[in-house]
């Protein structure tokens, strides 16, 4: 059963340089208990998509222009601010990228976790603190009772991200949005945090939207992937399918840019070299009539710059927006 349905979402920011089409017609579904990864480089609109779901776009700078976001059948885009407040942190929680700055420096850990519990579940402060302690134990923070009275600066980055997770899951949300949850952590801690998130997700049966630019994180955590470029969805498939048969040239570019230890390039007689995607992300204030990736794409033809490619299901359960899927797949084979 689908818990979240995003349909043709357009979120725009109104700046002095013009309208920025940060999210430009994105649609996806998320099933209960599923982990969906949204992948793309900086500025492709993945974080804005997440913020749009929680309606956290600052009204002064931008807004959701059109499209629909249905959560458990409820249309989120038309709810009042008051109703949204009841959903944030209760039914849908969010984990941010920066554990070092995402906790308020002047409030204790216990206060910050208990506050959400008390507000959303209507329990007493003491019960809120008890739940906070339970959650800290759940995220494997040692000596949880003492930690309740500590301040964020007394914790390491990994511990703070654990606290963030505890906070996000304290009200047993049905959907967890994780915006680059491991980007600011070092590699050994990254793996621990990801494992912890997946373990807790099973425990409370939540669905996860994992926003990341790290295909390694995708492979380890997600069942399905949405690849975004310049505010548009360019490809969507299950993880295995996407890594086996990437159909969009952008996805292929991303994959070639990952250092891999298992391919012994030296043995094939050429030097191991990572390939970057040439060019720059397009400026989003100008309307792009064709494929947004065309200027950087080795397969691009005139048709690509003139006409926007539709999302087509070329293989079962695998859709991509590219005019030249055949050539891309052919070259890969």
């Amino acid at each position: 059963m689908s818990i979240l349905q995003v349909r043709d979402l357009h979120t725009q920011f109104f700046t002095q340089d013009g309208v920025v089409r940060a999210v430009d017609g994105v649609s996806f579904d998320l099933d209960q208990g599923e982990t969906l990864a949204i992948v793309g480089e900086s500025g492709c609109g993945k974080s804005v998509t997440a913020m749009s779901i929680l309606r956290l776009i600052q009204a002064e700078t931008g807004r959701i222009v059109s499209g629909s976001i249905k959560f458990e059948g409820r249309e989120l885009t038309t709810l009042t601010e008051e109703q949204m407040r009841g959903i944030r942190g209760h039914d849908i929680s969010m984990i941010f990228q920066e554990p070092m700055t995402s906790l308020n420096p002047v409030l204790t850990i216990g206060t910050q976790i208990a506050e959400n519990v008390v507000r959303h579940l209507g329990v007493s402060w003491q019960e809120g603190l008890n739940r906070a302690q339970e959650m800290l134990e759940l995220v494997k923070i040692s000596d949880a009772k003492r930690r309740l009275d500590e301040y964020p600066h007394q914790l390491s980055g990994g511990m703070r991200q654990r606290v963030m997770i505890a906070m996000a899951l304290a009200c047993r949300p049905k959907l967890l949005i994780a915006d680059e949850p491991t980007t600011a952590l070092d590699v050994t801690i990254q793996a621990q945090i990801l494992d912890l998130m997946l373990e807790l997700k099973e425990k409370i049966d939540a669905a996860i939207v994992m926003i990341t630019h790290d295909l390694g994180v995708v492979a380890e955590t997600a069942q399905r992937v949405v690849v975004m470029y310049a505010g548009r969805k360019v490809e969507e498939a299950t993880v295995g399918e996407l890594f086996a048969h990437p159909m969009h040239p952008y996805t292929r570019g991303l994959m070639r840019a990952i250092p891999r230890l298992d391919i012994d390039a030296e043995a094939e007689g050429r030097r191991a070299r990572l390939q970057e995607i040439p060019g720059m992300v397009p400026v989003l204030t100008q309307p792009i009539p064709g494929c947004a990736f065309a200027p950087r794409c080795p397969f691009a033809t005139e048709k690509c710059t003139a006409e926007r490619p539709p999302l087509v299901e070329n293989r079962p359960g695998h859709i991509a927006a590219c005019w030249h899927t055949d050539r891309v797949l052919e070259q890969a084979a």
């Binding site: 969010m94 506050e115 959400n116």
Partner: peptide, 8 residues
Amino acid sequence: ESAISGGT
């Protein structure tokens, strides 16, 4: 932002 996303 994090506090707002928690409903505060």
